[in-house]
Write a protein that binds this DNA or RNA. Structure first.
Lengths: 202, 202
DNA sequence: CACATTACCGAATGTTCGGTCGGTTAACAA
DNA sequence: TTGTTAACCGACCGAACATTCGGTAATGTG
């Protein structure tokens, strides 16, 4: 829990392990519903000691949201196979997003609950909109090349797609016997080939 | 806004229109992030006047959650065509849930964000679990009769299904040019027949 | 051992929170 | 106009809130 080995001075928390505990609390009680007292109790620290590590509650939130956003944008920036169709690339982005969501579950969970009550939150919302926009572009290209059904608007498709992906944070727990890759496979299978489909046909 | 015509005494808010304003505020800033002062400002009332209509903030929440839950459970209790397959019934429940979600959007939105910080919230969570359980049963029966792909676990299917439906509250707005029935049709089409599918084949 | 460095704590700050209370104001009915 | 009913308000309360500050405790290093 306390992991700052190899440094000078009295040992104790580093920012990352502190952040981990804080984010867990934020996710359980909500950011506004979590007091610094509650964080202190979980950390086994006094309230005032937290301010030695971070400037305040809001910085904790900012660090968490930044981590989630970085991980998600990294998926979009993975350089695609130059020969791949937009449809294949879309499928890849969905698949990888599920993996990232699972790997950074608490941070992404917090990100998806932000409402815009402060500058930090509004910045995160802006970034999310940028992400959505880039996915919608990809869907549009996939629809144009005929890889995705034409009777549904690409923007709607994009929202359904990532609505489903994002909804995973509401129930998925990595220790529940369902592996990340199995989950990602099932999700892409259902979304791309349908619930009614016989074993896939790609 | 003030609608209590035909009664005796000084006119003013009734509980329903008050609730409507409160729930809108809760959805914008979060329940914990919304103070009674903020509610008073939106209502054009003083803080203390709110307590003339409801016992407190928590009753407001309880009324809203109850309304959402009643609407959702009513869908499950709609008596099915006795000849219908479980698959058809499942599709109907999904379709109707989208309609209810749209009709009671602010209340359902609030319901889906509850974290369990109080007795009222925990009761709502219990009810939601009951709802999920009844849907999962339906999926299991649909899978048993071969109407739904067998290579995905029914519980997972159920979660993906309602994950997608519930994610609508994050973006759907009834005034956005997309009608409820068009939305429900697109959603059921994508989920049951897949994103890749040519026009349906049921 | 002493020194620098880092981690931590108790007590207090001003502010905001949800909620209470006694009294006033506006409507309708008689 | 008077009585009844319901709606509303300003002032206030204790508790919880995030944050500050002066000081103390534990470590690695010389």
């Amino acid at each position: 829990m306390h992991r700052n080995a190899g440094r000078v001075g009295r040992p104790g928390y580093d920012r990352d392990s502190l952040l981990q505990v804080a984010v867990a609390a934020f996710n359980e009680r909500g950011y506004d519903g979590t007091g610094m007292e509650e964080l202190a109790k979980r950390l086994g620290l006094s309230k005032s000691s937290i301010y030695h590590h971070v400037s305040g509650k809001e910085e904790l939130l900012g660090l968490a949201l930044g981590r989630a956003l970085d991980a998600l944008f990294a998926v979009l920036d993975e350089l695609p196979d130059p020969d791949a169709t937009a449809t294949a690339r879309l499928e890849h982005v969905v698949h990888r997003s599920v993996e990232v969501l699972a790997a950074e579950l608490p941070y992404v969970t917090l990100l998806l609950r932000v409402r815009g009550n402060s500058a930090v939150e509004r910045h995160a919302l802006d970034k999310r909109r940028e992400f959505d926009h880039r996915v919608a572009e990809l869907v549009t290209r996939a629809a144009a090349e005929g890889g995705v059904r034409a009777d549904v608007d690409p923007h709607l498709t994009s929202r359904l797609l990532f609505g489903t992906v994002n909804s995973l944070v509401e129930w998925y727990r990595p220790d529940g016997g369902l592996t990340v890759s199995a989950l990602a496979d099932a999700l892409t299978a259902v979304l791309f080939d349908g619930l009614r489909a016989a074993p896939a046909r790609n």
